[in-house]
Amino acid sequence: MRTGMIQSCFLLILLFSMSEQCGCPAQYTQQVVCDSKLVVVAKVEAFASDNLQTNYQISVTKFYYGKMEYDKLSDKKTLETPKSSAECGPVVLSVGSSYILSVSLYNGKMSHNLCGLQVKAKSASQVLLKGLAGKYKDNCDCEIPYEFDPPQTGPQTKNQCRLAPRGCSYQSVCSRDGNGRCKWQGC
């Protein structure tokens, strides 16, 4: 009886801890960019923090995608980020540094969590920069499996890029080749 109770308690603790974890479905930068309304280079000017979130004061210095969406925002300077790991935080950005960020938009505000794109601008790889220059968005119709998708079975279709082969970066581009098939490029 006692062993069963201990196992039940352990199971409850395990389930509770699992429910408090962040789960990012996108494995590849291309998926994040294709799912984003706004991708920018932003310089962090300052920040303020409370128990739930950190609000970064930013200035957008470059737009990759979403300038029209940005123009509609009521607050163009504040980037809200969660502190809780259950909400895919904490996001840590350095004042004075510039970052390439994918940003979610809601109620006229910007938000960002650890599931989004977050790369120091001066450390951006050539693969990432080529992807952001249009390769990612131009190939959003190529299907890339998300982390929680069931494994793909059967023959690969023209529109599918399955898991990237060894040697591919998570920033690689899944794009159409000369035959119109989606394939990983630059691996």
Score class of each variant (00 low, 15 high):
150 P>D: 05
167 G>Q: 06
139 N>R: 08
125 S>K: 09
13 I>K: 08
138 D>M: 11
117 L>V: 02
87 E>Y: 05
59 S>K: 15
125 S>N: 09
28 Y>C: 04
179 N>D: 13
135 K>Q: 10
86 A>D: 13
3 T>C: 11
154 G>P: 09
57 Q>V: 15
22 C>F: 07
147 E>M: 08
77 K>N: 06
6 I>K: 10
128 L>D: 00
121 A>F: 12
122 K>M: 12
85 S>I: 13
161 C>W: 00
126 Q>V: 09
22 C>W: 03
181 R>P: 07
89 G>T: 01
2 R>Q: 13
166 R>F: 12
125 S>W: 08
109 K>C: 03
8 S>T: 11
180 G>L: 11
169 S>M: 12
178 G>C: 02
159 N>F: 15
129 L>V: 07
56 Y>D: 03
133 A>W: 06
169 S>F: 08
101 L>A: 01
182 C>W: 00
94 S>E: 07
172 S>F: 03
69 E>P: 09
30 Q>W: 02
87 E>M: 13
73 L>A: 05
165 P>N: 11
178 G>Y: 04
60 V>R: 00
133 A>S: 15
77 K>T: 10
139 N>Y: 10
108 G>C: 09
117 L>I: 04
28 Y>Q: 08
185 Q>C: 06
28 Y>M: 11
12 L>T: 09
39 V>G: 01
178 G>W: 04
79 L>S: 01
32 V>A: 01
187 C>G: 11
33 V>L: 04
115 C>Q: 05
74 S>A: 14
5 M>I: 13
130 K>L: 06
104 S>C: 12
